[in-house]
Design a protein around this nucleic acid. Structure first.
Length: 656
DNA sequence: AATCAGGAA
């Protein structure tokens, strides 16, 4: 007790002013009382800004409710886990990694003294694969549950099950009022509701459903700018293309507005989407001359928060990925958002002061929207989830107790894929390959390819496959801003390896390493530096896992694989190495990616297995080249069914 | 001659 009094005294004054008025404070006793018993549970319902994420773990710690074990707090996003941990550590007057720490991919600050650990939901899930009882933790706090990420859904089920077998306390935190469902699922009847700290936002709807939404957005933005007092504008659109279109439209009008007859007040247009290079993303957060209008994708709905926003323009649309069970392919389609999303978007205007939200859709359209976005687990390829569950020793995964159970068809598709990958035994349990795959943090298709590449027949190309997989997992290596499109494409072409997107990615990476990760090199060639940095981290991590997996039972490491690690630095020197090596990589891609082989007949590609038609993606180096046989690593339906990332395998293809 | 939601391990 004494100790905690001391901790309280060391609150920094900057925080005590803010913290003192947190709505969560008045619920402290109720929260600690609810968690007194072993295996007790609590649901906390509260909007962002009520202080639940930062304060509740401290209450638990102060009251000694986690015995000597750690308190885990999960977050859907890594930045959130890191920044919240740093902040709570600061509030307790200690540095991050002592009493309060965090654990996210590539970054971990945890010590023997750590009592509160913020981690991403994906990270806690990994812990559960290594230790299915999560024995380190006495209390698990699942935060932002309303976002319903796949990892959160899996964790909810795991935690629910663990509470039946050992003393584990659980707190489920959610911003929405779908509390009865959570309450019934966990069998927890204690609920604390906390008010948020937000200001009212006036909502305006479109009167008539007319015009396209990019034009409507432009008109609304200009009207808001001309008729409303200061405060920045945030406009939600669906993707990069809309954003760039609207940006050009607005900039034209702004140019006109500069004419002395109009003398329009300054307005600055700032795009914001995930694939934008870092230095351009930052512009959304910087102060600027005059009013700022940010044109954003869904990234601004939950992932980033921008200060100074008073006006929202909401298209009511977003792009959503869905797994199509009929074809087993992902689709990415423009979809109407849900009522919850609409509320979340409008709320972005009321964080600091009262705001206004202009919805580019009628009230009737709003009424027809679904209440909430379908959970991700309904829309995803389940193969990775199944491998994870099997790795935790759960046998009957299709009966697994999810809060919302995915359809049987999703399971059937996933099992089909896992069978094709040959990672299950006759009883549908993981075989040796499957167990190895469960350790590697990539999509099953890629973990299979990685393990496949370590076969001796491929000599030492494993490290190249690792790089290719790392590059595929970051996407958007090449960046082409609208104003520099031609120039960017010319620069990009220099890196093209003419018969393969995969070898092209490898080539870019090798040049990047050769230039020692130089920022100038990236900028000059319109290459996304952020992506390449991440690819470097991923390939190092993947190499590490492959090394562990290749360890023999006597603990020694097979020589070839150990060599792989040391060779990473040498890559640059052998970047232009010969044709034979590329041939081996091509062969490995062909044999390790058995799902997607396509044959060309009169410029039309059909699957060699199902004979279904597919097109080469316009961004591929093979676009309009029509080699006879190609293998691809990703298929997605947008406007058409596309193969992204293809390699010409005509020279190595063997007919069945 | 056309494309590119967001997150995580």
């Amino acid at each position: 007790m004494n100790k905690h009094k001391r901790l309280k005294k060391s609150f920094k004054p900057t925080f005590s002013k803010f913290g003192g008025s947190l709505p969560i404070f008045s619920h402290k006793d109720a929260i600690t009382a609810a968690l007194a018993e072993p295996s007790s549970g609590l649901i906390i319902c509260g909007q962002t800004g009520c202080g639940k994420t930062t304060q509740v773990p401290k209450y638990i710690l102060e009251a000694g409710l986690s015995s000597s074990k750690m308190i885990a707090v999960t977050q859907p996003r890594r930045v959130a886990a890191v920044t919240i941990a740093q902040r709570v550590a600061h509030e307790l007057g200690s540095s991050c990694g002592q009493t309060v720490g965090y654990s996210v991919r590539f970054d971990k600050r945890v010590s023997d003294d750590t009592k509160i650990c913020y981690l991403t939901d994906g990270m806690l899930l990994r812990e559960a694969i290594l230790d299915p009882t999560l024995s380190k933790f006495g209390v698990i706090i699942l935060d932002e549950v309303h976002e319903r990420t796949v990892s959160t859904d899996v964790l909810m089920a795991i935690v629910k099950k663990l509470r039946e077998t050992r003393d584990l306390k659980v707190i489920v935190m959610s911003a929405t009022i779908d509390i009865p469902k959570i309450s019934e699922y966990f069998g927890i009847d204690k609920v604390v509701s906390v008010k948020g700290r937000t200001y009212p936002v006036e909502i305006y709807n479109l009167k008539q459903p007319e015009g396209n939404y990019v034009d409507n957005a432009m008109i609304s933005i200009l009207q808001t700018h001309l008729e409303h007092p200061e405060g920045d504008i945030l406009c939600f659109l669906t993707g990069q293309e809309d954003i760039e279109d609207l940006q050009s439209l607005l900039e034209e009008k702004i140019e006109l507005g500069k004419h002395p007859d109009y003398n329009m007040a300054p307005l600055v247009v700032v795009p914001l989407y995930a694939n934008l290079p870092n230095h351009l993303q930052l512009r959304a957060f910087e102060k600027c001359e005059g009013r700022k209008v940010i044109l954003a994708t869904n990234i601004a709905e939950t992932s980033v928060t921008i200060n100074g926003i008073r006006y929202i323009i909401d298209s009511g649309l977003c792009k959503m990925k869905s797994f199509q069970t009929t074809t087993g392919v992902d689709t990415l389609k423009i979809t109407a958002i849900s009522k919850n999303s609409a509320t979340q978007r409008s709320g972005r205007a009321g964080r600091e002061a009262p705001g206004k939200c202009f919805r580019l859709y009628t009230e009737e359209i709003y009424d027809e929207m679904s209440d909430s976005t379908p959970p991700e687990i309904f829309r995803t390829n389940l193969s990775r989830v199944i491998i994870q569950l099997k790795a935790m020793g759960i046998k009957d995964v299709s009966d697994f107790d999810f809060i919302d159970k995915p359809s049987k068809q999703l399971y059937i598709n996933a099992f089909k894929e896992l069978n094709d990958l040959r990672c299950l035994d006759a009883d549908a349990n993981l075989n040796e390959l499957g167990r190895k795959m469960s350790i590697i943090p990539t999509e099953p298709v890629y973990s299979k390819l990685l393990i496949h590449s370590t076969k001796t027949e491929y000599k030492n190309i494993s490290k190249d496959i690792v790089i290719i997989v790392a590059m595929l997992s970051v996407e958007n290596i090449f960046y082409a801003p609208r104003n520099f499109q031609r120039k960017a494409e010319r620069k990009h072409k220099k890196f093209f390896v003419l018969d393969s997107d995969h070898l092209t990615l490898l080539n870019v990476y090798n040049y990047y390493i050769k230039n020692k990760g130089n920022s100038g090199f990236c900028k000059e060639n319109f290459i996304n530096e952020k992506s390449l940095k991440k690819a470097t981290q991923i390939s190092n991590q993947l190499l590490g896992y492959l090394k562990t997996l290749s360890q023999k039972s006597d603990g020694t490491v097979e020589e070839t694989k150990a060599e792989v690690i040391n060779e990473l630095d040498m890559i640059a020197k052998e970047a232009d190495e010969n044709y034979d090596r590329n041939q081996l990589i091509t062969k490995c891609l062909y044999e390790g990616l058995p799902l997607n082989t396509y044959q060309c007949h009169e410029n039309i590609y059909r699957s060699t297995k199902t004979h279904e038609e597919c097109n080469i993606h316009p961004t591929s180096v093979l676009f309009n080249k029509f080699p006879t046989y190609v293998v691809c690593s990703e298929i997605i339906i947008t406007s058409k069914k596309y193969m992204r990332f293809c390699t010409d395998i005509s020279k190595v293809y063997v007919k069945d």
